[in-house]
Design a protein around this nucleic acid. Structure first.
Lengths: 146, 146
DNA sequence: GTGCTTGCAAACAGTTTGCAGATAG
DNA sequence: CTATCTGCAAACTGTTTGCAAGCAC
């Protein structure tokens, strides 16, 4: 759906275009973000960075993720009972399918989602500026190993 | 939509039916829950209980809310960046309309929501066991006072 | 009287913040 | 050279847990 290399370059350009610095740590994080389609958590990203940057810290990762979030280049999925998850490939609201067992997060294809947003806007009179559509179930892998 | 008195009695019966004790604190909390249609937070409930029970503690409130949640008699809306909110009147998943300014939470009338759940189930092959449909906007009151 | 519940305080977990030293541009 | 970034550690916040005393049944 998204070409990882193109997306990586777009993110690099976006940072370079402003006064932001392209540190090796940030470049590695951007690569990980665009290479993940499982919606990684900060601690997952932290683990993956240990090889290249054994001294990197959670704080740095959160700072970069928050920077990207402020630039609207990453979508943060917050959970009150679990780590936040991040999507650097589709940084705009879209439906998510969450396995309650292994916590894998997928993007289902649902044509009806935008229609629903419209319906809420029309019915309520609110101007809808964002949404969060999460569906919970057990993924095929977890169902199998029951 | 829900008769508060009837709902209150249903909750009381539910607790009495099991081995749970109907303490004055719990009864007051149940009354507050069914009387609120604004999806109160634990700290909001705590504030409201101060008159009647000046020594009540957040811990007790959370314990009772978690008990009701385990009995599927209250719906918990968790937020990673804000207090959890609780709905004791409609303790099943349904769409919410959230004001990003004053954090008021309403229940929009949306006929399409169940269709969307169906569509996700069909398209993904997951058995959907829950969902969370949140829409963000600015409520009329807050829009007015801009 | 029994054992669930309360209230208090400490613990918890994920995230944020502050700061001194390091480094990208 | 300078302002931003990193890494570390402490702080923060909402929620949970442990425990002794209280109270519903």
């Amino acid at each position: 759906m998204v070409d990882p290399q193109a997306r990586f370059e777009a993110l690099v350009d976006r940072l370079r275009g402003q006064e932001y610095r392209l540190t090796p740590q940030r470049i590695a994080l951007l690569r990980l973000l665009v290479a993940s389609d499982g919606h990684p958590s900060a601690s997952h990203l932290y683990d993956q960075l240990q090889d290249q940057f054994p001294t990197t810290s959670p704080g740095t990762i959160y700072k970069t993720l928050n920077l990207l979030k402020d630039l609207d280049e990453v979508l943060e999925l917050g959970f009150s009972d679990d780590d936040n998850r991040y999507d650097g490939n589709k940084p705009y609201p879209h439906p998510h399918l969450i396995c309650v067992r292994c916590r894998k997060i997928m993007d289902p294809e649902v044509s009806m989602a935008q229609d629903l947003v419209q319906q809420v806007a029309q019915q309520s009179g609110y101007q809808i500026i964002g949404h969060r559509l999460d569906f919970y179930g057990v993924c095929p892998d977890c169902r199998e190993s029951e």
